[in-house]
Design a binder for these strands. Structure first.
Lengths: 191, 191, 191, 191
DNA sequence: GATGAATGAGCTTTCATTCAT
DNA sequence: AATGAATGAAAGCTCATTCAT
């Protein structure tokens, strides 16, 4: 395996603390202590506290992208693909609530370098953009401005994950899950 | 008037800097310098840096609430009321981009005391909750779980303001504005 | 007065400690403690530990230059002017042993930025260069390369101050003082 | 041979870095990296960073002493012996500029233990002291205090090497070399 | 001999806050 | 009300040194 145990422990602890207390409120000493390593060890693996945050951000983004890639190409029916993508992305968020919260907190914050944030956004939004464009050509999705639809999808995804993370038991209920998809799809659907 | 020039200068500068750099990255010395006052003056008007943030948060929330109150009661038609509320809220955001960004950044952040954040959220979401409940009773709005719909409305509002603040010229185009409302309304509409 | 008491206390203490222990061995905490101020006060007056060193270096250089300026123009006789300059410079060093030691330690060290060091060197060596050139024109001083003579004068000055600072009582003896000037002058004198 | 390649690489690199950046500014990690060895290797060969500095200092001192020993005894003429010693010492410095710079920087610095420095100084100044004393007995050298003359010789040697290391091409010119010796000798010569 | 991940004491620097003026 | 020099706890980070491999 390529990541040492100590490095992984630092990453896990940093994720938990950054989400629970915020970046600036979390001291490197606290991360090290709770990860069971010396303060110097943190800086042996990451050049700075900022670099640790960036690494966390990029690797979580990658993990998410890996999880949902392919979920939107399985069917010949576009709506089925959209549904698969939606539930695949939501499932990942519900299964990784800490990582989802991390994303929610830091994907908009000035704490992370804009260039890194934008790159991450675009990579992930790429999936949805492709899907929307295909849907518009097939006349299934309304002809609204693409930028607006992107932001809208993103906003709805954040809202849905927020809801299911705050109420995990509702994720078990078919009608709640279905409701979340309908909110998402009906907004965009051609009328 | 009750707020001195210096106090107002501090508030304006703090808003700009908190949005541009984040709360922890902005020093009280920087706020004071850029506001043209001495460092001590800031603490003459606000008990602490946190108190300044809270004051900013609550007064902006109040300003927003004042701006949209009443916009959802003007018609007897629910959809018209929803449209009015939607455009009224968006208009305020577009007219006050800094304050909207501030809200976007801090209404979720652990930097502000949870009790203050929740109170603010509920006050503002109250408008929408009332509207949704009425719509469901009239059979105009789908019978999805109320919490999910609240989160969804909030997410769509954030997404739309994000879009129009990033592309201010599109706010002038009727079809873009209309598209934003359709995305919002059609998602929730009974089918 | 333009320099506050605390700033002066920091400068005095830093001079003493930098000479006694060296720059890197002296902590800013030690300077502050011994100067009777808080650690923050040091950084209120100087941007960094390095800036403190630079300030010390440049102000001592200025003090020295002020002390010897004019000493080489009082007579019409060149050798008399040289003697006056020599004893004036030596007197300053004997009267300010700490500052002389500081100069000796840091005017060659990579700790201080080269540009600052060179500027300081040239300012002070300007006096001697003028004198040597005049002496060569009058046929009193040998026609050796000017750069070599500059370095030589500097080296002899450092050696003489070293000697008299290490043996202060010898500075009281006319023959020792005279010997130091003869070593200096006879080396350069035309033969 | 007794010194391994890695140990020698460490010594060479340390010499270069200590001269270029100073002792405290040079990290053991930097030495190891630039020498192409692991950090642990440095401590396998030297007990500590200080021990490395001391080793460097003493071995360079020894090298210098070996180079000039014997150069002052070849003739029956004292001035000839002095000239030989002067040029021999200068030649070594010009041929080993890094080592000379190292000496210049560290033979006065509090970084090296005083006892080691003094011992080194005396060993080397022994040559010159003997020569001066003989010269005074023969009436060739002025009767100035011996300590003053020692410091003066040392200062002139440092000045001359400084000059020729900074202007290597001048070392090729007979008149520059001769001038350096005249400055040295005429200062001390009986009048 | 050689490696380099790990250590943790100790450093410089920051910054919200105070208070005498 | 306003000032800004002064404070000192606390932060991020460094680096000589160790030791299991």
């Amino acid at each position: 395996m390529s990541i040492t145990d100590k490095k992984q422990a630092i990453l896990d602890t940093a994720l938990a603390l950054f989400v629970a207390q915020g970046f600036h409120t979390t001291t490197t000493a606290a991360i090290a202590r709770q990860a069971g390593v010396a303060t110097g060890t943190l800086f042996h693996h990451f050049a700075s506290k900022d670099a640790l945050l960036d690494y966390l951000f990029l690797s979580i983004k990658q993990e998410f992208a890996d999880a949902i890639v392919g979920s939107a190409n399985q069917s010949t029916d576009l709506k089925t693909n959209a549904r698969n993508l939606w539930f695949c992305a939501l499932s990942w968020a519900i299964a990784n609530p800490l990582k989802q919260e991390f994303f929610q907190l830091y994907s908009m914050s000035p704490t992370i370098d804009p260039s890194i944030r934008f790159q991450a956004m675009n990579t992930i939004l790429g999936f949805i953009t492709t899907l929307i464009a295909a849907g518009q050509q097939q006349g299934l999705i309304a002809d609204y401005p693409i930028g607006l639809m992107q932001d809208n999808c993103h906003g709805q995804y954040l809202a849905a994950t927020r809801y299911f993370i705050d109420h995990p038991q509702h994720w078990q209920l078919d009608e709640h899950r279905e409701a979340s998809f309908k909110l998402f799809w009906n907004g965009m659907a051609a009328t």
